[in-house]
C-alpha cells in the first residue's frame, strides 16, 4: 500500500518535473523527487543508496541547479509553453514509453530464483577487513570501480572548471550575527556526524560518499556565513584544498600499487591489514568528495570570484 502510493507519487512528480514550463518549479519538484526516491531506497532496504540520494541527489544537486538558474538570463528561465511539442515530441514520448515497457517486461521475465553474488560476498566477508557487505564490495572486492568513480568526480570537476563563467548577479549582504553564530555552533556537530558516518561504514550503512556529502554541506555553510575560516586566497590553505581534491584518487591508487608490492595483487590488501587501509582510503576519499562537491556548488554561485579555486 505504502509502496504503491510512493511509486505513484514518484511517477507523478517526475512527469510534472518534465512537463512544467517554469524552470524554478521544475527544480523544486526535482528536489522533492530526490527525497521520495531516497524513501524508496529505504523501502528497498538499501540505506546506503538512500543516504547518498538524499544528500547528493536532492541536496547538493538541487543547490547546483538553483545556482545555475540564477546565472541564466531572465528570458530563458521559462520555457515557452507548447513550443516544439509537435510530431517529434510525440516520437520521443513514444520511444521512451516503449523503452519503459520493454524494461518492465524484461525485468518481469527474469526468473525470481535470484542469482546474485551475495553468497560469495558473505563467504569472503571475513577476509575483507570490514563487516558491512556494501563496503566490502566497494572498497575491497571491486576496489578499482570505486577508485575510478572517484576519478570521474575529479575529472568532472576539471571539466566544470573549464566551463566556468564568472557570475553576473550579486547576492544580498548578510545582516546580523544569527547565521554566523549558528554556523559556528553547528559546524563541530556536522564534522562529528561526518566522522561518525565514515567510521560506521565498516560495519553498517555509511561510508565515504555519505560522509563527504555532509562535509561538503558544512563547507558550504561556512561560505554562506561569510566566515573567514577557509580563505582560499591564503597560500597554505589553497595548497591544502588542492591536495584535498586529489587525495581520494591518489591515496586509493597508491595503496592499490602497494598491494602489488605486498603480494596481495593490484588493488588488493593483505587480509590482516585490510581494515586499516580501507579506513585510510575512506578518510581521504571523504575529504576529497566533500571538497569536490562543495567546490562544484561554490563555483556555480552567483558572486563567486574567478581565480579563488
Amino acid at each position: 500500500m505504502l509502496d504503491a502510493i510512493l511509486t505513484l507519487l514518484i511517477l507523478a512528480l517526475a512527469w510534472h518535473c518534465v512537463r512544467t514550463t517554469d524552470l524554478f518549479e521544475a527544480i523544486v519538484v526535482f528536489i522533492a523527487l530526490g527525497m521520495l526516491v531516497a524513501l524508496a531506497w529505504t523501502r528497498l532496504q538499501a540505506p546506503d543508496a538512500a543516504l547518498a540520494e538524499a544528500a547528493i541527489g536532492a541536496g547538493l544537486a538541487g543547490a547546483l541547479l538553483l545556482a545555475s538558474l540564477r546565472q541564466m538570463p531572465e528570458m530563458s528561465a521559462t520555457r515557452a509553453p507548447g513550443a516544439k511539442t509537435t510530431g517529434l515530441g510525440w516520437f520521443w514520448w513514444g520511444l521512451w514509453g516503449a523503452l519503459g515497457l520493454a524494461l518492465v517486461s524484461g525485468v518481469a521475465a527474469i526468473q525470481t530464483t535470484s542469482v546474485s553474488l551475495m553468497p560469495q560476498v558473505q563467504a569472503h566477508l571475513s577476509d575483507s577487513g570490514v563487516t558491512h557487505p556494501v563496503t566490502a564490495v566497494l572498497l575491497n572486492f571491486r576496489a578499482l570501480d570505486t577508485a575510478l568513480e572517484l576519478a570521474v568526480l575529479l575529472w568532472a570537476w576539471m571539466a566544470q572548471k573549464q566551463l566556468f563563467v564568472p557570475g553576473r548577479q550579486t547576492v544580498y549582504p548578510l545582516q546580523g550575527q544569527v547565521l554566523k553564530t549558528a554556523v559556528k555552533a553547528l559546524l563541530p556537530l556536522m564534522v562529528l556526524v561526518a566522522v561518525y558516518l565514515l567510521w560506521r561504514g565498516s560495519s553498517a550503512p555509511g561510508g565515504a560518499f555519505q560522509s563527504g556529502a555532509v562535509l561538503a554541506s558544512a563547507w558550504l555553510m561556512l561560505w554562506l556565513a561569510q566566515l573567514p575560516g577557509l580563505s582560499r586566497k591564503q597560500g597554505g590553505m589553497r595548497l591544502g584544498i588542492q591536495a584535498g581534491w586529489l587525495g581520494g584518487v591518489t591515496v586509493f591508487l597508491l595503496v592499490g600499487l602497494l598491494g602489488v608490492f605486498q603480494g596481495a595483487g593490484f588493488m588488493g590488501y593483505p587480509p590482516d591489514q585490510a581494515g586499516a587501509w580501507i579506513l585510510l582510503i575512506e578518510s581521504a576519499a571523504a575529504l576529497s568528495i566533500g571538497l569536490l562537491l562543495a567546490s562544484m556548488v561554490l563555483v556555480s554561485m552567483p558572486d563567486f570570484q574567478e581565480g579563488t579555486l
Partner: peptide, 14 residues
C-alpha cells in the same frame, strides 16, 4: 529558525 531568518532577510533586502 535559521532558514526562516535567512528567507526573511532576503525578502527584506528585496
Amino acid at each position: 529558525a535559521l532558514v526562516s531568518h535567512l528567507i526573511g532577510q532576503s525578502l527584506c533586502s528585496q
